[in-house]
Design a protein around this nucleic acid. Structure first.
Lengths: 190, 190
DNA sequence: GTCTATATGTAGATAGAC
DNA sequence: GTCTATCTACATATAGAC
């Protein structure tokens, strides 16, 4: 693979990543991506066989991005509680986009749940990454139901994003994420 | 308006309601609705000026349906806690469709957040109805932050639906809704 | 590798006969 | 009120010149 080609491929993925988030997968056309990148529509088929393949590449990119974000959380501290708080801070820091467009992961999964099974299971991969990482943190805290707690934390963050976006309410977003942090700090080994 | 016409109009709304839920608003075409109802595509414009108008009619139908559902919860008991539990049971009872397709209200709001502002604010109306009803129940319990609690309950139900659907996990759905019920019963006046 | 031209299908919406 | 035929736009995808 040539250097130039890889560059174009990357630019297509990056533009698709933004558009799939801001407009949704189904509402993003090849023309939209072409307008942003300056790469002609027909050229996309040199890099990807179908639109679904672009989605797969976008999801794989997101997995790598979140892997790096989780490593950043790991590097903040050895304390698993503080690591989880650091992760919550990521959503807190993307206030504007979450209120405007929702959670990139959750909104994509919700959209693709109404499409084919293949697309949905692909989009789920990011959630699986986060769940496993969260589960490890809860395990390190010493909780026996670490996986359940991971699902609960993901669930409450998703609910917070859905409501903050539906009501365009950034104050709710901050309050709810603050409550989530209190919940994490209050968790005790029973 | 004639009887026959009103009947056709209602059938269009009902078919659109199902399709907007199962496939999404943007992925539902007039042809899809025509196939189900047997009413030709071109005929739709006698009843609705645009597709957006069909959405508005669907949302208004849903508002009425949920108003009736809330009245049923009100009729179960005078106890506000038990009324809230009865509402949670509604989602628990639609296990299959929630795991398959998500929450009808939340998934529509999430989808339309990426479309026009007009569509999104229309879809929000169902959420507003539920929030106000929940807020009244929390108020009757005696909580000073009733509106916050209403947002929290809606939020946790939405998160539960997003995760249960993303992971195709009905066991999680039931466990999470059970936890929500415990949370409601444990709420005390501080 | 890159680009233009185009094939093929379907979307929402309209016109007008009946 | 009901239906058919059709308009215009745009979707994904392909063919083939350069």
């Amino acid at each position: 693979m040539g250097t130039k080609g890889e560059n174009n491929r990357t630019r297509i993925i990056e533009a698709a990543d933004q558009l799939f988030y801001k407009r949704g997968y189904n509402q993003t056309s090849f023309s939209d991506i072409a307008d942003i990148t300056g790469i002609p529509r027909g050229n996309f088929y040199y890099y990807f066989k179908t639109k679904d393949d672009i989605l797969a590449a976008v999801v794989e990119t997101r997995v790598k991005q979140y892997q790096e974000a989780l490593m950043s959380c790991d590097n903040v501290t050895d304390n698993p509680r503080e690591r989880l708080l650091a992760f919550i801070d990521i959503m807190d820091g993307s206030e504007d986009s979450v209120v405007d467009t929702g959670c990139p992961i959750g909104s994509l999964c919700s959209e693709l749940a109404k499409d084919t099974d293949a697309l949905q299971s692909k989009s789920r991969e990011v959630f699986e990454l986060l769940r496993d990482w969260m589960s490890k943190q809860f395990e390190d805290i010493g909780l026996v139901d670490a996986n359940d707690k991971a699902m609960d934390l993901l669930s409450r963050m998703q609910g917070t994003a859905v409501m903050a976006c539906a009501f365009k309410d950034s104050a709710y977003l901050h309050r709810s994420l603050g409550d989530l942090k209190s919940w994490i700090n209050s968790l005790s080994l029973s």
